[in-house]
Write a protein that binds this DNA or RNA. Structure first.
Lengths: 368, 368
DNA sequence: CTGAAAGCGCTTACAG
DNA sequence: CTGAAAGCGCTTACAG
């Protein structure tokens, strides 16, 4: 064991010294000191160390030797790591995979790299990453862990001041980007009204969190704005029918929900109260609703329109294809990273810049 | 600009020195030299430097000061980075997001961390990451870039010998894990035969790549093994009907394909040649096939069974839910990381251990 | 069993 | 405009 560990070290060493040349090598070849070489190659724009001719000689030498600065050495001198920690429940999560991808893209755009912190593996992972990120000296942290996971967001912010959250973390002073859920519901209601729908239902998993209350408010306010009657019977809250488990402990069963719930939705909203449209909790609910409606001989959208929420892959493959709300993940990612970038450069954001809301859009397909 | 860059450096410094204590701090508090402290805290198991009592004092001091080893300093001394580069076309890619997640999980299990290399952003990204990974001293690289992207896999392997690919990279000496596509097709054919299907069709996007020829072979060999007649009319190759663009230039339109193709599949296989089952190129084809069949009044599975390939999110939400082949991504990820781990510890794998095939499984839902 | 010292590759005051 | 030197935080021969 010690034997093999030793041989690894030796091999690593050899590889490192074999195919990567150092600043000293370059300086020697260029006939200058390593201070000058360093300034020319890795220094900022304010290089007054040498004239352009010397600089060119140095650059030429670097090219010849295939020189690339050693990242660890620069870090040790107090330079930025150009690494961004990305905390997420799980990277493959259907609700967040687009966001993760866009975040990475934006991070690359500002010249940094993403280090994944997959926190669903175990409850202690979140705290572990707080430490690990510190050890590795990340410049900032992006936290896109679902709000229903109870992790130490305050602790994260305390250790990593340059943190930007996706969705309100409920931590004083935290910077975050959130989707405007009220606007989302207003879009959906307006669209359905334009399609001639008068009895628009809302089916959600919970109303006990403020983010979901926002939805209810947007729904109500747009109904009012359009002069449509408000009927509380058209709001379905799954919580009224027993506990709904969507929390996950493993990756596999994470996004399941009791199929019967959709039967209940149709019973209450459509059968009992004559809804002619349903705005669903998310695309998964919407897709199942469409199946349930068909099974009961209800036509979509002729009899009942269905609107989803998320705009994930499956929307094109439901039958009919699903009209849904797009979360504008690309815009959200851009906002998050640019906020973080400003924090890295200039410290804490002034209060009025700490919160940004992204306006979702409506994607019309065939279910409305 | 220089002003602000300076202030950043200063701030970083201050933070670093403020809240992170060093080995010297711990040694001072424990009353030992930093050599001993280092050995106790960061040394391997073969610690014969001091007795257990001294060791405990050191550990106590470390706890008290909240000591954590500085990653950059260890790297600079030739230690492993415990960072693994993960090359992927795009992290949010529906075809690979599960694999990415499992790879990350496995990487964490061996005590390392994942650095994402999202290569779809631009063609030069792949080569860029080869360099960047080297600069950062990754211990190994996992490459899950789709085989239809033409990237310099040989160059990757040359710079990073501890690389494991997903799917055959066509590079001599490369280590890789691949799904056994022949076995996949055999599973599908056997299952359909057991359900009483006699005219089983195969609809694929291309047969010009060896991976897809494998499918054809598995399909044929199982038909033969079961004594079912072989009818070349039941094989649909989209290439016969003009070029099919599935390559992507942007994220948005990546997984689209001409909807008319599915109409052709139904025309040829079902209408013209009486297929009573179709094994589809992937779940997306399968989902669209189901919609197309319904639109033409063909019942699934009563008249025609449909089998997908991938087992991604959408399979539960097609109507009927899709029977499909599962890629066993978790197993593949485990195999890849364990191969890489062995390479990190003991160098190149012997030839017979460089290739591993994962057996896919059949997930039966309602479309068969 | 333990300490003092050199070195990893870079940056940055400090002298010239 | 340029070089020699100290230092970042650790590891590891080398002396005791």
């Amino acid at each position: 064991m010690t034997q093999s560990a030793d041989s690894v070290t030796r091999r690593t060493r050899r590889i490192a010294s074999r195919d990567r040349s150092t600043l000293a090598d370059v300086a020697r070849l260029a006939g200058v000191s390593s201070s000058v070489a360093g300034l020319v190659l890795n220094g900022g724009q304010g290089n007054t160390r040498c004239g352009p001719k010397t600089a060119e000689i140095v650059r030429q030498a670097a090219r010849q030797l295939g020189y690339h600065p050693n990242h660890a050495a620069r870090l040790l001198c107090g330079k930025r790591s150009h690494t961004i920690g990305l905390l997420v429940a799980s990277a493959g999560d259907p609700l967040r995979s687009f966001l993760v991808e866009y975040l990475d893209t934006e991070v690359v755009k500002i010249g940094c790299h993403t280090m994944i912190g997959n926190t669903v593996i175990s409850p202690s992972q979140f705290d572990y990453y707080i430490e690990e990120f510190a050890r590795r000296g990340v410049d900032g942290v992006l936290c896109a862990v679902h709000h229903w996971f109870d992790v130490d967001r305050a602790g994260l912010l305390a250790h990593h001041p340059n943190t930007v959250f996706y969705e309100d973390p409920n931590v004083p002073g935290a910077a975050y980007v959130a989707v405007d859920r009220q606007a989302a519901m207003r879009l959906a209601v307006r669209h359905l009204a334009e399609r001639g729908r008068r009895r628009i239902g809302l089916a959600v998993m919970t109303l006990s969190e403020t983010t979901h209350l926002d939805r209810l408010q947007g729904y109500r306010s747009e109904l009012a704005a359009l002069g449509l009657p408000r009927d509380e019977k058209l709001v379905f809250n799954a919580e009224d029918f027993g506990p709904i488990v969507t929390r996950c402990d493993g990756v596999e069963h994470k996004w399941r929900f009791p199929g019967e719930v959709m039967g209940l939705v149709v019973d209450r909203l459509v059968r009992d109260h004559g809804a002619d449209a349903i705005i669903a909790h998310d695309d998964f609910w919407a897709a199942t609703l469409i199946k349930t409606l068909r099974a009961r001989g209800v036509r979509v959208p002729a009899d009942v329109s269905v609107v989803g929420y998320l705009n994930h892959y499956l929307t094109d493959w439901t039958d009919p294809a699903l009209t849904t709300i797009d979360m504008q993940n690309e815009m959200a990612a851009n906002a998050m990273v640019s906020m973080m970038q400003r924090m890295i450069h200039s410290g804490p954001l002034p209060e009025q810049e700490r919160i940004q809301r992204v306006k979702p859009t409506l994607v019309v397909r065939d279910s409305t």
